[in-house]
Amino acid sequence: MAQADKLEADVELNAPADNFYKIFYSQAHHVPNASDSIHAVEVHEGDWETPGSTKLWKYTLEGNPEYFKEKADVDEANKTITFTAVEGHVLEQYKSYKAILRVIPTGDGGLVKICVEYEKLKADDPPPSKYLDILVSVVKDVDAHLVKA
């Protein structure tokens, strides 16, 4: 049986941390306006703000269209959002997958701590580095978009 593991990255924000957090917490439908990698984010069950709502993300990864259906859990006190995969391409290779964004205010900007927790289906499968890379890219795109706004 495969063992659970994680990948991590930090991204510094130039935009105010609260504005960045709000996008991923309750305004994810704006992410496609900021990032060319993300084509659409749609509510599948629930709404934009209620924890436990399900959203469908459509994106391009390594030139291929993919989708990620997630259920989000929110820890407002710690500005942390956990996106747990319930369907999508990522689950073709991983038994479980969670992307966790923690937004930490620092001065006028902030820091986003990204953690990808996953469990491989097969021991020889590679870690989901390409999924961490797209998360880092989208975080940077949204930050740049907020700075321009």
Score class of each variant (00 low, 15 high):
D124V: 10
A144R: 03
L56G: 00
F20N: 00
H44V: 07
C115R: 13
S26C: 06
S35I: 10
M1D: 12
L56R: 01
K120A: 12
E87D: 11
V116G: 05
T80L: 12
F68L: 13
F68Q: 06
G63P: 02
F24V: 05
V31K: 04
G88V: 03
Y97R: 02
Y118M: 03
W48I: 07
S129I: 12
E62D: 07
A144F: 08
A40S: 12
E66S: 11
Q93K: 05
L135V: 10
K95M: 12
T106D: 15
D125I: 09
D133H: 04
K130H: 09
T54A: 14
S96D: 11
K6L: 15
W48V: 06
H89A: 13
E62I: 04
K113M: 04
P128V: 08
A123F: 13
F20A: 00
D73F: 01
V138C: 01
E119Q: 12
L101D: 04
D143S: 01
N33L: 14
G46Y: 05
Y67L: 12
E42P: 00
A15F: 02
T84K: 09
A9W: 14
E87L: 08
V11G: 11
F83K: 01
E45M: 13
P65C: 09
T54V: 15
P126W: 08
A99K: 05
D73G: 00
L146A: 13
G110A: 10
E62K: 06
V74S: 01
P128T: 05
D5N: 07
I81A: 03
V31G: 04
L132V: 12
D73P: 00
F68G: 02
G52C: 10
A72F: 11
P51L: 08
Y118A: 06
I100M: 03
W57V: 00
L7F: 08
G109I: 10
H44I: 05
E76D: 07
V147M: 06
T50H: 00
Q3V: 14
V142W: 10
V86T: 06
D36P: 14
D10K: 09
H89L: 13
M1Y: 11
A149D: 05
N33P: 08
V136E: 12
V116S: 08
V43Y: 01
G107T: 02
Q3M: 15
K6C: 15
G88T: 00
P105T: 14
V116T: 07
L132N: 04
H29Q: 13
T106Q: 15
D18A: 11
N14K: 04
P65D: 15
T82H: 11
E62N: 06
S37L: 10
Y94T: 05
E49R: 02
A99D: 09
E12M: 15
D141C: 02
R102K: 11
W57S: 00
L146H: 12
